[in-house]
Structure formats: C-alpha cells, structure tokens
Amino acid sequence: MQVLRIIFVHVLSALSAAVVYVFGIDYDGYIPYFFISVILFIFYVIFAAPVQYFVNRNPKRFNPKYLLIYIFFSFLVWLFFAVITDPKNTLDFLMEYEVYLFSISFAVIFWIWDSVFLQNEKKAATK
C-alpha cells in the first residue's frame, strides 16, 4: 500500500509539474504535455525518491524544513543538467529566472503531494 502511495505522489507531481512547465514555456498542445509528464515522472523517481525516503523517516506534514530540502535538491538537479547539457553556458543558465521558478515550483508541488498522501499515512499508522 505504501508503494502505491509513493507512485501516486510521483505521478501527481509529474502531472502538476508538467502543467507548470508548459505554462512557463508558453506552449500549447497535448503531445508535449504527455512527454513532459513522462520525463518528469522519471526524474522524480530517480532524483526525488531517495530524498523522499530520507525525509519520510521522520514524517511531519507540511514541514518547512522538508520544503527547503526539496528546493535544494531540485536546484541541484537543474544545475546538474545545465552543466551536462551545455557546460559553457552554465552561468547564463543560472541568470535566467526560469531555473529558479521551475526548481522552486517543482519542489513545492512534490512537497505538497508528499505531505498530503505520505505524511498522513505515517501519522495515522503511529497512533
């Protein structure tokens, strides 16, 4: 049951983040939305799941400290991909507001879904 909740959090986070991303880049269309959702789901599973496991060892709903942890790691992932894709223009990439908008919004989205679905079950299980 816990694994299904984790997958559900990742799916909802990917769908929500894809909406933010599509509106952020100002593009219309359903096909890119589907591909962006799939890519974001893979990124959430690869990069957010270990952080989520670490944070959920001591569950607290809507803890601001957890939000800061998610924002930090989200920014690291964006920075990692900026360096990998174009190392010469990393500083230009860091000067764009989209990097901060997407890293913070993707972390907030994940933090909200994590707090709603996973922190709730852990809290109920300890009572």
Rank of each mutant, 00 (worst) to 15 (best):
W78Q: 04
S16A: 15
S37E: 08
L118P: 01
W113C: 02
V108I: 15
W111N: 08
F81R: 08
F117W: 05
L67T: 11
I42V: 14
V19Q: 10
K123S: 13
Y27T: 10
G24T: 13
F62Q: 08
Y21L: 09
F93N: 06
S37T: 13
F81M: 13
V45Y: 01
L12D: 07
D114P: 01
Y53P: 00
I71W: 00
F47Q: 03
M1N: 12
F35G: 15
F80A: 06
V19W: 06
E96N: 11
I39N: 05
W111R: 01
L40E: 01
M95Q: 07
V116L: 12
L91Q: 11
L12M: 11
S37N: 08
Q52S: 12
V3P: 12
L118Y: 03
L12T: 00
E96C: 02
F117T: 00
F81L: 13
F106D: 02
F73L: 04
L118T: 00
F93D: 04
L12H: 02
F106N: 08
I109C: 07
L76S: 03
I25T: 12
R61W: 10
D26H: 11
E96Y: 07
F81H: 12
Y53W: 15
F117V: 03
M95L: 10
V55H: 00
E98Y: 05
V77A: 06
V45S: 06
Y30C: 06
K60Q: 14
P32S: 14
V83I: 09
K122Y: 13
L67K: 07
R5W: 02
Y44G: 09
T85N: 14
P59E: 07
S37Y: 02
G29K: 04
Q2E: 13
S103M: 01
I25R: 10
F35N: 14
A107Q: 03
S74R: 06
V11F: 02
A82G: 15
F73M: 09
M95D: 07
V116C: 01
R61M: 14
Y53F: 15
F8S: 09
